[in-house]
């Protein structure tokens, strides 16, 4: 029944609707530059969402763990074969995205008889110099974007934009020391998490995809204050645990990726927030 173009477009539309639904309960991911490299942060329940891909490349994901795992393995395979056959400097985030992830995700999305990948992925690449740091994000339909200084994953494009808007309202965050950068990233994460909660609460009344946040985007005064953002984080950590990884420009050896353990992360968090695993 999908042979007719109209039916196909309709099927893809349904699929979009179905997929949008899958992310509403997911935790957003924030990645941003800081004084010594890049940090990435999210809150997760059980399965981790942040991973090491190669010497200078980290991955953050939203969506179904099995899909994420499958794509993570294909990226790892591609990166290591390339790094071995050519050289570690030839393994770049842009190539992994364009040739590794995008075609596979797009194909799965459009083959309407098969299951799509329920994922959104963020790749952060640490450059040799800060101006070479690069962030790449890809949506479940295979569209990808490049950005500098920060990137985010959220249930909708609006949520992602809100998080970025928060970061942009913090002047000089990309040169902030780690402790301050963690706090800023936490707040940006809370902006996303709150926006997501608001848009799924409003879904009953409004047209899906046109959540109330859409109408207010661009207006900086609507961002919640830092106190209420941190209060939201404090509440989140009672049921989820925070995950934070770094790509450290001056780290020892060739692998620049380092996951912060709960003790170290605990020391960096603003007061009142603990990393103790939820009861």
């Amino acid at each position: 029944m999908y042979e007719e173009p109209y039916r196909w477009i309709e099927a893809v539309g349904n699929r979009r609707h179905y997929l949008d639904e899958q992310f509403t309960k997911g935790a957003p991911v924030v990645a941003s530059a800081y004084a010594d490299g890049i940090l990435m942060l999210t809150a997760s329940r059980g399965t981790p969402k942040l991973y090491e891909i190669y010497d200078r490349i980290a991955l953050g994901g939203m969506g179904h763990p099995a899909d994420l795992e499958k794509l993570r393995f294909s990226l790892l395979e591609m990166a290591h074969i390339e790094g071995f056959n050519r050289s570690p400097s030839d393994v770049t985030g842009a190539r992994l995205m364009k040739y590794g992830l995008a075609p596979a995700i797009k194909q799965a999305f459009e083959e309407i008889y098969k299951a799509p990948f329920i994922v959104k992925i963020l790749l952060a690449e640490l450059g040799t110099r800060p101006e070479r740091d690069l962030f790449l994000t890809i949506n479940y339909d295979g569209t990808f974007e490049e950005s500098r200084r920060w990137a985010s994953l959220g249930a909708t494009a609006t949520v992602q934009a809100q998080m970025g808007r928060y970061l942009d309202s913090q002047p000089g965050f990309e040169q902030a020391p780690l402790k301050q950068a963690v706090e800023t990233a936490l707040c940006a994460w809370a902006v996303g998490s709150l926006a997501q909660a608001a848009s799924s609460a409003a879904e009953g009344e409004e047209t899906p995809g046109l959540a109330p946040a859409d109408t207010t985007a661009g207006d900086a005064s609507t961002l919640p204050g830092k106190d209420s953002l941190l209060a939201h984080v404090r509440q989140t950590v009672t049921e989820k645990s925070l995950e934070c990884i770094l790509l450290e420009r001056n780290g020892p050896g060739s692998s620049k990726y380092r996951a912060l353990g709960s003790d170290e992360l605990g020391g960096l968090l603003p007061s009142g927030i603990s990393t103790a695993s939820p009861a």
Partner: peptide
């Protein structure tokens, strides 16, 4: 590369 690959895939 083997040690790195193992660490990154198997966590």
């Amino acid at each position: 590369h083997s040690f790195k690959y193992y660490r990154r895939t198997q966590l």
